[in-house]
């Protein structure tokens, strides 16, 4: 099997390393992360609609921290998965897609699209800084949809290149 270009390999490795590290951080740094998240909610009182009522504010903090942890959990699983997807699909491009131009067209969307999991890091931070709904919408609209769309485009392109008989397996 042929090897894809080094920058593509590097992105795949960085995604796997990020996924592993995020998993470890979620487990080992849970308490500090919760404290930090709680402090960020307090620092952005207006966007989180804190009222001064302890019971209500605690509920808001708990729901926000749940979303932050969900974002980190999705980062862990998606980074591991897409690191592997990028490794194997780019190897497929290098090995089975004939024509330098086709390969040059396919590597960028596959590689940039594989950065999709970073959107979940943005999601976690945006939820804290912009509020739950606005943060989720920001991450989904500007990062997750764009990068996810690119990944889908790259995969469809790979499928098309193979189906068009340009593969040379």
């Amino acid at each position: 099997m042929k090897r894809p270009p080094l920058p593509v390999v590097l992105v795949a490795l960085l995604l796997l390393a990020l996924g592993e590290t995020a998993g470890a951080a979620m487990s080992q740094l849970r308490a500090p992360l919760e404290r930090w998240s709680s402090a960020r909610v307090d620092a952005n009182r207006a966007v989180h609609g804190l009222s001064g009522s302890a019971e209500y504010d605690d509920e808001v903090r708990a729901r926000t921290i749940f979303l932050v942890e969900a974002g980190l959990s999705f980062l862990h699983t998606h980074a591991e998965g897409l690191g592997l997807v990028l490794f194997f699909t780019s190897t497929l491009v290098a090995s089975a897609v004939g024509g330098r131009r086709w390969r040059a067209l396919l590597y960028p969307p596959l590689t940039v699209g594989a950065l999709f999991p970073v959107g979940y890091l943005v999601y976690s931070v945006a939820v804290l800084e912009l509020g739950r709904d606005a943060g989720v919408e920001f991450a989904e609209r500007w990062v997750l949809t764009v990068l996810g769309g690119l990944a889908i485009l790259g995969l469809l392109g790979l499928g098309a290149a193979l189906a068009a008989g340009r593969g040379r397996a």
């Binding site: 080094l6 590097l10 390393a17 592993e20 590290t21 470890a24």
Partner: peptide, 23 residues
């Protein structure tokens, strides 16, 4: 988890560093 997971994390960042140097 800590020894084996740590080994994987260290190795992955090390490998990423080597690929960066090569580039």
């Amino acid at each position: 988890w800590i020894p084996f997971g740590g080994a994987t994390i260290v190795a992955l960042w090390w490998l990423a560093g080597l690929v960066t140097l090569r580039m």
